[in-house]
Design a protein around this nucleic acid. Structure first.
Length: 191
DNA sequence: GTAGGGATAATCT
DNA sequence: GATTATCCCTACG
């Protein structure tokens, strides 16, 4: 299991890249699901798209905690997104996990998602949250402990592609190259 | 296979 | 009252 020092050893942009190739594991009461992280986005404190850009509020409070804290929030009234808090404690920054390559618990993921194709399980931030059973309850959880944590792997990464982020309004940080994904991986959310 | 739009509610102003 | 770090279905070629 990756410990607290892993998350605090990098600034937010570098952590976003370091998270690629790590295996995210959730041991829920219904079973274990996991996947390799293949796509991330960084959100910095001085970045208009960051939830913590304006000020500290009840919703973004986890972002100001220790690096490695879980930040889960609801979006569009129906979906949840999962972030890994990054940077120094007291500064609101985080890395959005956008896609996984499924590894363990495929049957449970298919059941939770109501989809059969592997490509439809974790190829988007809302999808992967649903697939591996992340719930609002895990907000503020530390990824350095069970039941929700990361491990290192031997996953081979040829190259990391850096592009602009998905779903950001024009003029609100849409031009920043803060999206990262594993090249030639078919499980990413989109090209 | 791809483009367009509707669903749906917490959060903040 | 506006906004939103999304997903899925439908229509069309």
């Amino acid at each position: 299991m990756l410990g607290p020092d892993f998350y605090s050893s990098f600034d937010t942009l570098n952590l976003a890249k370091q998270l690629l190739g790590k295996e995210l594991i959730h041991e829920s009461p219904y079973g274990i699901c996991s996947g390799i992280i293949v796509e991330t986005e960084a959100y910095l404190f001085n970045d208009p798209a960051c939830h913590a850009f304006n000020k500290r509020t009840p919703r973004n409070e986890p972002m100001f905690g220790q690096a490695g804290t879980v930040y889960v929030y609801q979006i569009y009234g129906m979906y949840h997104c999962f972030n890994v808090v990054s940077g120094k404690t007291g500064i609101g920054e985080a890395v959005l996990i956008r896609a996984l390559q499924p590894v363990q618990g495929l049957d449970l993921m298919k059941k939770r998602r109501g989809k059969e194709r592997e490509l439809d399980l974790c190829s988007g931030p809302g999808k992967l949250v649903s697939a591996i059973g992340i719930v609002k309850h895990l907000n503020f959880h530390s990824l350095a402990s069970k039941p929700f944590y990361l491990i290192d792997t031997n996953f081979e990464i040829e190259n990391i592609i850096s592009t602009t982020r998905i779903g950001i309004a024009k003029g609100k940080g849409d031009e920043l190259p803060y999206r990262f994904y594993v090249s030639n991986n078919k499980y990413i959310s989109k090209k």
